[in-house]
Design a protein around this nucleic acid. Sequence first.
DNA 1: CGCATTTAATAACCTATGATTGTACCGATC
DNA 2: GATCGGTACAATCATAGGTTATTAAATGCG
Lengths: 250, 250
Amino acid sequence: MSNPFLRRLMHATDLGRPEIDAIEALCRQPRDIAAKKYLARDGDDIVSFPVLISGWAARYQILRNGARQITRLLLPGDAYYFDSSPAGTAIEEVITLSSCRIVNILHSDMERAIERFPAIGEAMRGYGSMENAVMSSWVVNIGRRDALERMAHLLCETHFRLALVDAVQDRHFYFPLTQDDLADVLGLTPVHINRKLQQLRQENLITLRSKQLTIEDLRVLQQIAGFDSAYLAPRTQPKQVFDRLTAVAA
Amino acid sequence: MSNPFLRRLMHATDLGRPEIDAIEALCRQPRDIAAKKYLARDGDDIVSFPVLISGWAARYQILRNGARQITRLLLPGDAYYFDSSPAGTAIEEVITLSSCRIVNILHSDMERAIERFPAIGEAMRGYGSMENAVMSSWVVNIGRRDALERMAHLLCETHFRLALVDAVQDRHFYFPLTQDDLADVLGLTPVHINRKLQQLRQENLITLRSKQLTIEDLRVLQQIAGFDSAYLAPRTQPKQVFDRLTAVAA
DNA sequence: CGCATTTAATAACCTATGATTGTACCGATC
DNA sequence: GATCGGTACAATCATAGGTTATTAAATGCG
């Protein structure tokens, strides 16, 4: 099971062999795509939705004054599904932040799959719940934490989300965000991102070089962020995953 | 059709008589509840979800330092459905901001209704899309707009959302948020909320007294906020509602 | 009706973050 | 190995918004 999308869904619900096969079937024909390419543009009519097999992408909005705010990070296994479902119109732009492998799933195909296997619908809803929880946490993060706490929280969050799809080795993972990207995620300026990144490095909490991030002290980082992974943890099985992760951090 | 929940759903999809009846059936037995009562608490097991028939409520999180961030406003017709669906655990607290009339719908009942009438599932998903769009807009609002713009945007947004359920007369509506609440919605301090409220009043853009808000100049307010109602506008019929609203504003 | 509590208004001062500008690095490309 | 575009880093100054405190006005309650 190397398909991270499937892995994500299985964190939401238990899926049997037939459901798994159906999802795998939807993921035939992945395409490779370079960094900084659009996966969706505002106003596009949507008949299919992209799923990330590998790589990072971002959903964002641009304001009149040119400011950009990234509203979600799409990590391996994530989909641009809700908001656009089905036969709607894209409400935000989606751009790749690294080279990516993606698969485009037709809404009609997904609907048919859900019809045949209600458990898939259940899994998609569960996945959507997690997406919503992440959105909430971003509002809280940007609204009520200062710059350092925000950074720390984001790093913890991506660490745990990536761990869910086995994209973390030890405390080390691929992290393609530039400081400009980080600024647009956290609602800060690139300059200030730089300052806080320096601070985290000086305090030996992280190492970040050429898009490789190592979390040197997860415990302290969580402490700074006030990070609690509960909102990312689905119901049953994955609970153990988090217990394990937290235990190691302790 | 005085049920605002039904009204919301009908903005998402066309529903026939049987679907309408099924939803009305779910909304039997509304209960009245006072302001500042919990509709859900963090960690609660969820077997039913609340729907607001009238009144306002808020979803929020509290940080270690006691700071509060409201993550969503629940207006008449809104439900605390996603994130909690089905048989999950509440991830945020929900509190009434005014006296409310609510109805509690069992997840099992909703599921059965969707099974019998797929269009209801469709409508719920459409409603969820709008919820997500609002979440995104909050991230953008808090992340990239200054205090005055944020206030203006929030006022525009609530105005349009309330208009969708006919809770606006002319440009005037019930607005129970205290300045402390506003601060916790917009990620600011009460003092600063007060400053900006004064400013909006001085410029004759709004009147706000004893929980009654009148938008005196929607045009300018939208201008300040960079507000575009598109993200709130569902597919077909309601489009006209917005055209009308916008026309009046012009 | 009067008291208690919440909410609103305002003032004075302070700080985290923004704005601006310049430099230095690093990895690609030819 | 020269050039170039994207990053990262540094230093300085400016300001939006935070903090704390006080008073006044509403609002609810017994």
